[in-house]
C-alpha cells in the first residue's frame, strides 16, 4: 500500500479533505472514511454496478476507481437523492411510488446510472434507459418496475 496522500473531493456539494493511500478505491473512502454507506459493495471488480456513483457528471463504478483519480472531482452519491423520509430527487420518489425494488441492494447504483443519464439526456427513450442500465445487475428481477419509474421521473422532469 502506497503512502497516504492528501486528496480533495467534493461529495454531494460538500468539500472533503482526506488522507488516503492513492490506490484506495473511491468506494471504500466513501463508505469508511466519509461514512456515506448508501453506496454498496457488490463485486469489487466493476462488473455489477452496485457501487455506481457520478464523478464529474459520468456514472462510474466506485469499487475500481482509485480515489486519486477522483481528486478534485465532483462526486455524487445516492445520499444526494434522499433523505429516505422525504426524497428530494424525482428519481428516488418515482422508485418508491412505483415500488420498483425488492431487496434494493442494487438500487442506489441504478439510481446513480439513471441520474447521470437524465442529467445528460432529459428525454431518453426506453431503449436509452435500458442501455444506460446495462452495467447494473439486479438479481431480484425488479427491472420492469425500475424502467417504469425512470420513465415516470424523466417525464416529470420535462414537463
Amino acid at each position: 500500500m502506497a503512502e497516504s496522500r492528501h486528496i480533495e473531493l467534493s461529495v454531494n456539494g460538500e468539500r472533503h479533505h482526506i488522507d488516503a493511500s492513492p490506490e484506495t478505491p473511491l468506494l471504500y473512502v466513501l463508505r469508511d472514511q466519509l461514512g456515506l454507506l448508501g453506496t454498496r459493495f457488490g463485486c469489487g471488480q466493476g462488473t455489477c454496478g452496485a457501487c455506481m456513483v457520478i464523478v464529474d457528471g459520468k456514472a462510474v463504478t466506485s469499487c475500481d476507481m482509485a480515489v486519486e483519480a477522483a481528486d478534485g472531482c465532483r462526486v455524487e452519491t445516492v445520499e444526494s437523492l434522499g433523505p429516505e423520509s422525504e426524497p428530494k430527487h424525482r428519481l428516488a420518489r418515482a422508485v418508491l411510488d412505483e415500488q420498483a425494488a425488492q431487496c434494493s441492494y442494487c438500487l442506489p447504483g441504478i439510481l446513480m446510472s439513471a441520474k447521470a443519464l437524465l442529467d445528460e439526456n432529459p428525454a431518453p427513450t426506453e431503449a436509452d434507459i435500458r442501455a444506460a442500465l446495462n452495467g447494473n445487475l439486479c438479481r431480484c428481477g425488479s427491472h420492469v418496475r425500475i424502467l417504469r419509474a425512470i420513465v415516470v421521473a424523466a417525464a416529470e422532469g420535462t414537463t
Binding site: L37, G38, G82, E84, L96, Q99, A101, S104
Partner: peptide
C-alpha cells in the same frame, strides 16, 4: 421498508 433499503443503510 423500501425507502430505508433504497436510500438508507
Amino acid at each position: 421498508d423500501m425507502a430505508a433499503r433504497v436510500l438508507g443503510t
